[in-house]
Design a protein around this nucleic acid. Structure first.
Length: 597
DNA sequence: CTAGGGTTAG
């Protein structure tokens, strides 16, 4: 009953659909829910909720709200805040909004806590714009804005990837002295920036902070250090580490975990050891994250046995491996093609009473797909739903790629239909998989009709989509169509990147149109898009295939001059050309060493 | 009392 009421309340709003997505419908009867709620309510007492309380289902929360609004005198706003917070932790965002509206309608006064929760609900629904529409209510009630309000909004804007808007808002707040940014606000902005690839901007904010009243704390330093580590800029990260130490701010386990992760990814194992002993000497004990980072680093280098040793070590030290530990190991075995071992690990995980999560399944499914064992992969795929979990977008993408790889196009199409009706909303990666798959099997019409549908909404597609289309058309003998699409790119505001140029050059080479390929190479340079290793290999291969050795040599010199080298295909073609006509060698004297390789 | 911040896995 409560469910339907919420839906009714929502039908004026735009959130009814989001609501039905985020709510988990309870199977228990409303009666039971009501009883639960009443019991819960009695337990909490008239004074309000216990902060640790939670509800079985949305109905409990709504019923509790109904009880609360009927009470005389009304429970305090603290109790309403607690109720709403609980609902947010259960992801019932739109239900919070409905109940909030109901409070307003009933003339129940609200406070800034409630308003901030409401703003957060909008933000968590990725509608920060509606969050702003709550601000007038502060003014109407004479509440001053506080940093929490704007932090919530900033976080919401970042969550929608609107980096510029977030930075604008932050600047406005500071410039117009609307609120004084605290450590948390700096952390919010810096985290938003660094998680979206703007490490340098985060770093300059750190410098700005150092000059102001709010001094950076451990959180701030951890954000910046982690961002630098993720960028592989370990020197800079360690410089910041030393800076913070000098200021008397002690690095914590997160600081060390970020640094160790960065060093592992660079394969700098000696430095990893140094940092590891440094943290132990500081009485900071490595936790499950630290060990997972080490395990992952080793697995990515193919050293799964060493990773297994790390696990033995952590168990000896009393740190329990978690699902991620086993996932990392499974992925390590899958990467080496040892599917059976990965499957053992999977069984061990279950034996230990650890629930495999969607990652566990995705890793194994990916392993089976790479081995073209689609039947096994599909079995696991079905098992996810049987176990009461749900395949996510990555699961679908992995399976779809696997199905196309082995040519089971019909099943792939079926699975896509199933996804549209019951699965996650397809994203660009899914469409890329479909387009790529269609082209691979010569289904140009299908690919183009899907592309035309996608193209109607320009925000649906990106430069990679065009790369797939241009590549697919070229591979299917539709060079002219490919070129036409390439030429209209700039008119729709997309700058061709090195990959697109290379695809076009590949297309020309495929048709033996070497002059056109050469023109394209010069054109890209003119457009400030430098050819890379792949571009040069493609063009050299083009000349080699047509046995135009003189021109080939020109490009060969150019590419080696720029520090690029031949890939396996180029080398093979060159060897073939030489064996056919040994005099070719004389034309490239300076490359003897290269050829021998 | 109740609202906002940092780490790991495909």
């Amino acid at each position: 009953m409560a469910m339907s009421r919420i839906c009714l309340r929502n039908c004026n709003g735009i959130f009814s659909s989001s609501y039905s997505c985020s709510s988990s419908r309870s199977n228990s009867s409303n009666f039971e829910c009501l009883d639960d709620a009443v019991t819960l309510f009695r337990k909490m007492g008239r004074v309000g909720l216990n902060s640790s309380s939670s509800f079985e289902c949305l109905d409990d929360a709504v019923n509790l709200f109904d009880q609360m609004v009927r009470m005389k005198p009304l429970p305090s706003l603290v109790d309403f805040s607690k109720l709403f917070s609980n609902m947010i932790s259960m992801k019932h965002y739109s239900a919070v909004l409905s109940l909030f509206r109901e409070m307003l309608t009933m003339g129940i006064p609200v406070d800034e806590f409630i308003l901030n929760i409401v703003i957060n609900s909008y933000c968590l629904m990725h509608r920060a714009d509606f969050g702003f529409s709550v601000l007038p209510i502060y003014l109407k009630n004479g509440f001053p804005f506080n940093t929490v309000t704007f932090n919530t909004l900033l976080r919401g804007i970042f969550a929608e990837n609107k980096v510029k808007d977030a930075v604008e808002l932050f600047k406005k707040l500071v410039r117009e002295k609307i609120c004084d940014p605290d450590e948390i606000m700096y952390a919010t902005v810096m985290n938003g920036l660094s998680k979206r690839g703007h490490t340098q901007k985060a770093l300059s904010l750190l410098r700005l902070m150092e000059q102001g009243n709010t001094q950076p704390d451990i959180y701030i330093y951890n954000i910046v250090i982690d961002a630098l580590c993720k960028d592989g800029n370990l020197d800079a990260a360690i410089n910041i580490l030393n800076e913070m130490k000098q200021k008397g701010i002690h690095p914590d386990i997160l600081t060390y975990n970020s640094l160790i992760d960065g060093l592992c990814k660079l394969g700098q194992w000696e430095k990893v050891k140094t940092l590891f002993s440094e943290m132990v000497n500081l009485n900071m004990y490595p936790d499950v994250h630290t060990f997972n980072i080490l395990t992952d680093g080793l697995c990515k280098e193919g050293k799964v046995e060493d990773a297994e040793e790390v696990i033995k070590h952590m168990v000896e030290k009393g740190v329990e491996p978690n699902v991620i530990t086993y996932n990392v190991i499974m992925d390590g075995y899958c990467l080496r093609g040892q599917l059976d071992r990965a499957r053992r690990i999977f069984d061990i995980l279950i034996d230990k009473g650890i629930e495999p999560d969607i990652f566990s399944y995705n890793i194994l499914i990916n392993g089976y797909c790479k081995k073209k064992k689609l039947t096994k992969a599909m079995q696991l795929f079905r098992e996810i739903s049987q176990k009461g979990s749900k395949p996510n977008i990555v699961t679908y993408n992995t399976i779809l790629q696997g199905l196309f790889e082995v040519g089971r196009i019909g099943v792939a199409k079926q699975l896509f239909v199933e996804m549209v009706s019951t699965g996650p909303i397809p994203n660009l990666s899914i469409y890329h998989t479909l387009l790529d798959g269609y082209f691979k099997y010569g289904l140009v019409e299908e690919a183009m009709s899907l592309f035309n549908k996608l193209e109607r909404k320009t925000e649906n597609i990106d430069i990679t989509t065009y790369n797939i289309i241009i590549n697919g058309l070229c591979k299917n003998g539709e060079l002219n169509k490919a070129h036409a699409i390439f030429q209209k790119l700039s008119s729709i505001g997309l700058l061709p990147d090195v990959r697109i140029y290379t695809t076009m050059i590949t297309g020309f080479c495929l048709q033996g149109l070497l002059d056109e390929a050469k023109d394209m190479l010069r054109k890209m340079e003119g457009n400030n898009c430098l050819p890379d290793n792949v571009t040069y290999n493609v063009i050299v291969q083009g000349y080699l295939r047509c046995r135009k050795i003189n021109e080939m040599v020109t490009f060969m010199k150019e590419m080696t001059g720029r520090g690029f080298s031949f890939d396996a295909t180029t080398a093979e073609l060159l060897v073939n050309a030489i064996s056919e006509n040994p005099s070719v060698v004389d034309m490239l004297p300076e490359l003897h060493a290269e050829i021998k390789k």
